[in-house]
Simulated assay, not measured.
Amino acid sequence: MTTPRGFNVRKERVEKPHQSVYAHPLVFRELRKIAASEEVKPQDLYREGLREVFRRRGLDFDALDRGEEV
């Protein structure tokens, strides 16, 4: 199939399912401050926390995040 001239072609977006975390806005403000001071994104800190939770329970967060059964 050809795309008509002048039309943009987008790649299909594949997104991982996501969940929300509920906490007081002050928690998120402090998290953003920590992320800024460490020059990382808040998302990196969320993943760091999840990695630790799984590690304490003998599970490999990174393997699970790649879709591997553990």
Rank of each mutant, 00 (worst) to 15 (best):
L64Y: 09
V53G: 00
M1I: 04
F7K: 13
R55M: 03
P42W: 03
L59G: 00
A35W: 02
V40S: 04
V14Y: 02
R55L: 14
E52H: 11
G6H: 10
R10K: 10
Y46R: 06
F54V: 03
V27F: 15
F7Q: 13
D65I: 06
L45T: 02
L45E: 01
E69Q: 14
R5W: 00
F7L: 13
K41C: 01
L26A: 15
F61Y: 15
R5C: 02
E12H: 05
A36L: 09
E68R: 05
E69M: 12
P25E: 11
K33S: 11
D62T: 14
H24K: 07
L59R: 14
L59N: 00
N8G: 03
E68S: 01
T3G: 00
A36Q: 11
P4S: 11
E52A: 13
E39A: 09
L45S: 01
E38I: 01
I34Y: 02
S20V: 12
D60G: 04
E52K: 13
E38S: 08
E30Q: 09
R66D: 12
N8P: 04
F61D: 05
F61M: 15
R5K: 15
D60Y: 06
V21I: 15
V40D: 04
H24N: 14
E68C: 01
G6V: 08
E30I: 06
S20N: 14
L45G: 03
R47V: 08
G6Q: 06
K33G: 04
P4W: 00
K11G: 09
P25V: 14
P42F: 03
P42L: 07
R57Q: 14
S37F: 05
L26K: 11
Q19W: 08
S20W: 05
K33W: 02
G6I: 06
H18G: 07
R13G: 02
V27Q: 07
H18Q: 14
R47Q: 09
R10I: 04
T3N: 10
R55Y: 08
R10N: 09
R55N: 09
Y46E: 04
R5G: 00
E12D: 05
E48M: 07
K16G: 06
A63Q: 12
F28P: 03
D44H: 12
G67I: 06
L31T: 03
E12C: 02
K33H: 05
R32L: 01
L50F: 11
A23T: 03
A63N: 06
E52W: 07
D60H: 10
R13C: 00
D60V: 07
V27E: 02
R29N: 10
R56Y: 04
R47L: 07
F7S: 12
P42Q: 13
E48H: 06
G67C: 02
D65S: 15
V53D: 00
F54L: 15
A23F: 11
T3L: 11
K16S: 13
H24S: 13
R29T: 13
F28S: 04
Q19E: 10
F61C: 09
V9Y: 00
R57G: 08
V53Y: 10
G67E: 07
Q19C: 10
E15D: 09
R32V: 02
I34K: 06
R66W: 01
K16N: 14
D44Q: 10
F28L: 06
S37Q: 14
Q43K: 13
V9Q: 11
T3K: 08
M1Y: 02
R13S: 07
K41E: 15
R5I: 12
D65N: 14
R55K: 15
